[in-house]
């Protein structure tokens, strides 16, 4: 049983005078076995939240805390966070020329597990998981994400999640750029993990489409750097029909009022 707790998280990008606050007080608790959907308009800071949890150097935490089972995540390096059980499926996975998928996966698994996986079972596991995600075995010999289509990159992210077996996974718009088949395949991969492990999921999305495949326990609405509403799956249906307009307007009014109060 694991808990990821985010308390009053403030994050900015840029340096000095160019610094811009993107996250403005985020509170969230994710437990093993729970799936939280985070929905919000473009530019609201969803990826910033994901990257801040993973420790991307571009984002500066100015206030607040993130803990995993009581351990201070913000004090950990990027790799330590992954080894502690956090995983980020990126919105835009990065190409790494000259590094093969198989070498990458094995190096990552060795790092996360603390010892090299036994070759025989490892090769079998990789094959099985690739088959489950309907990935051609030839991908193992290709360079990481190099020349992968959008959908192939997302499958590769989920493949890593399957093999690295994190406690908490942040999936940042894993659904974007996927056609219906790929969306089903990727969603099934996530659902398999939810049923065969105790994975906690933070599912960041812009659209409700993926929520038809991956049923969330909680839905959070994220506007301009903070959560503005929380509910059950029914909230997603409401967003589907009404969009973010009402929230965005509220948020703009609040921001204006805050500015006036200063």
């Amino acid at each position: 049983m694991s808990v990821l707790e985010i308390r009053d998280l403030h994050v900015s990008v840029g340096e000095g005078d160019d610094a811009k606050e993107i996250l403005r007080g985020v509170d969230l608790t994710i437990r093993s076995g729970e799936t939280h959907a985070i929905m919000g308009p473009n530019g609201s800071g969803k990826s910033t939240l994901a990257y801040s949890i993973a420790g991307h150097p571009k984002y500066t935490v100015t206030k607040g805390s993130v803990t995993l089972d009581g351990e201070d995540v913000l004090a950990m390096s990027v790799d330590e966070r992954a080894r502690a059980g956090l995983f980020l499926a990126m919105q835009y996975p990065v190409e790494v020329p000259g590094v093969s998928v198989s070498n990458f996966l094995r190096t990552a698994a060795t790092a996360v597990k603390g010892e090299a996986p036994k070759l025989r079972t490892w090769v079998k596991d990789v094959k099985t998981e690739m088959a489950g995600l309907e990935m051609d075995p030839a991908f193992a010999e290709r360079n990481v994400n190099e020349g992968f289509s959008g959908g192939e990159k997302k499958r590769h992210e989920i493949l890593q999640m399957r093999l690295l077996k994190p406690k908490i996974a942040v999936l940042d718009e894993t659904d974007s750029g996927l056609d219906v088949d790929a969306l089903r395949i990727v969603s099934e991969g996530v659902n398999r993990t939810r049923s065969d492990s105790d994975l906690g999921v933070l599912l960041i999305t812009h659209y409700t489409r993926i929520l038809r495949y991956i049923k969330p326990d909680f839905v959070h609405v994220f506007i301009a750097g903070r959560f503005v509403e929380e509910g059950g799956p029914e909230l997603a249906d409401k967003l589907e029909s009404e969009g973010y307009a009402a929230y965005v307007k509220d948020s703009a009014e609040v921001a204006a009022a805050e500015a006036a109060a200063l």
């Binding site: 993973a54 420790g55 991307h56 150097p57 571009k58 390096s77 990027v78 790799d79 966070r81 992954a82 080894r83 980020l88 990126m90 996975p93 990065v94 190409e95 790494v96 020329p97 000259g98 590094v99 070498n103 990458f104 190096t107 990552a108 790092a111 996360v112 360079n143 990481v144 890593q160 690295l164």
Partner: peptide, 29 residues
């Protein structure tokens, strides 16, 4: 490229190993 290093490190690979992988990859082709 910090993005490449971040990607590798975000999978648990320590920074030094990540750099080795990237340099190896740089020359490999």
């Amino acid at each position: 490229d910090d993005e490449q290093l971040f990607y590798l490190c975000s999978r648990g690979i320590d920074a030094e190993t990540a750099r080795r992988l990237v340099v190896r990859g740089f020359f490999a082709d």
